[in-house]
Simulated scan of single mutants.
Amino acid sequence: MKNFSELSEKEILALAISLEEEDNKIYNEFAEGLRETYPDSAKIFDLMSREEDRHRHRLIKLYQEKFGNHIPLIRRQDVKGFVERKPIWLSRPLSIDKVRKQSEVMEIETQNFYYQAARRTTDAAVRQLLGDLAAEEHRHQRRAEQLEKQFINPQVQEKENKSAHRLFVLQIVQPSLAGLMDGSVSTLAPVFAAALATKDSWQAFLVGLAASVGAGISMAFAEAVSDNGSLTGRGNPWLRGASCGVMTTLGGLGHTLPFLISDFWTAMAVSGVVVIFELAAISWIRNRYMDTPFLQAAFQVVVGGLLVFATGLIIGSS
């Protein structure tokens, strides 16, 4: 890996060509990744991709005039000082906010590169082109804002916001809600059965802790391997698995932690109150994000929770 200060003018031009080729491909990937869900934003990145391609042609033309037809392969990772770019363009579907932030960083980084490169060169033609490209990258930021105003009117913005909301529900809310419901409901029976069978808060806590953590691990792996998200649009499987597993564990721990109270009947009462709040929270989330009428959601969740709760009481009292 070389320091930027060690590069010759020939290597600087070769690096600039490589950067423009990379940015062109990334903007193409952004456009393709956004086309189905955010078609109007995809048009912006199509135009930005073509701009980068024009920059590449100008750089190659000057390079050929100065150094011939062989262009050495010098990439950003071969030179110290460049910001590492996370390959968010490989994810499907793409997050519109992440894409816009990434493109802003790309434009600023490329602009700074051209400014620094122009200062280091002594050839007049090379310096002029690098300076011109630095100015154009600066104008790109304003151009992107103009394109956004052109293509992203209030109606389109509302449509894209709805698309973003659907993706958020699909990738985050659904697996998290599934985990919360499983953790809150499925652990009721073992926790309260153990509590009534032993009349010992600590033993009930240990059973609840084991049931919550075990269920969280099981649900995390089950969600992660269910599908890779490439066809369903459900996003990164490990992110879904992590959110599902964490919420499963938290759902079980909610009514398990009160059994840290040494007085058994006090712990039982507090845990029962927590169960009510858990079921109410699940009903609210289903109403808020899954468009399920609140009363219907409450009925479904409460009936299921009470049946499991009663099962635990019956088994623990027998």
Rank of each mutant, 00 (worst) to 15 (best):
N153I: 10
R143Y: 13
V126L: 08
F151I: 01
E148K: 13
A134L: 00
E148G: 11
K149Q: 13
E136H: 07
N153K: 04
L130F: 04
E137N: 08
Q150V: 09
H140V: 11
Q128Y: 02
A144P: 02
E137M: 08
Q155P: 02
A125Q: 11
A144M: 14
E145S: 12
A124K: 11
L129F: 01
D132N: 12
E148H: 13
Q150D: 11
F151Q: 05
Q128N: 11
L147I: 04
P154M: 09
R142F: 14
E136Y: 03
N153G: 08
E145A: 14
R143Q: 12
L147C: 01
R143V: 03
V126T: 09
V126K: 01
Q150N: 08
Q146T: 14
A144Q: 11
I152H: 04
E137Y: 04
L130A: 05
L130P: 00
A134R: 02
H140G: 07
R143W: 09
V126Y: 01
F151V: 04
E136V: 00
L147P: 00
A134P: 06
A135V: 05
A134Q: 10
H140Y: 08
E148A: 12
D132G: 00
Q128H: 10
E137F: 01
R143E: 10
A124L: 06
E137D: 09
A125Y: 09
H140A: 10
Q155D: 07
R127C: 03
L133R: 06
Q146H: 12
Q128K: 12
V126Q: 03
K149R: 15
N153Y: 12
H140W: 04
R139G: 02
R142L: 09
